[in-house]
Amino acid sequence: MSNQHQWPAWEVFTQKTDGEAHEHAGNVHAPDAEMALLNARDVYGRRQEAVNIWVVPSSAITASTPDDVGPFFDPANDKMYRWPNYFKTPDGIKQI
């Protein structure tokens, strides 16, 4: 019962159908990239959930932290002009 042979974790992203974006599905443990791909196929593709798979070492992911929430995302909330419905269309115009 030793830990030294624990394989590293890989994050799995699956593309459900052609043309869609890859979405995070979960993770697998694997010794290397090729085996991670095979494992991901067997674990997250059992029910035809994928037409393409990415695997990324979990350790390669850099994430923002909950403490970043304010400085990262709040500054976007006073820039309503990024949304088209911010702008009033003059009466009588049906489409612009």
Binding site: W7, V28, H29, A30, L38, N39, D42, V43, R46
Partner: peptide
């Protein structure tokens, strides 16, 4: 030998 391989062999 590991959960992932169990799943592979079942497939």
């Amino acid at each position: 030998p590991i959960l992932e391989e169990d799943i592979a062999m079942s497939n």
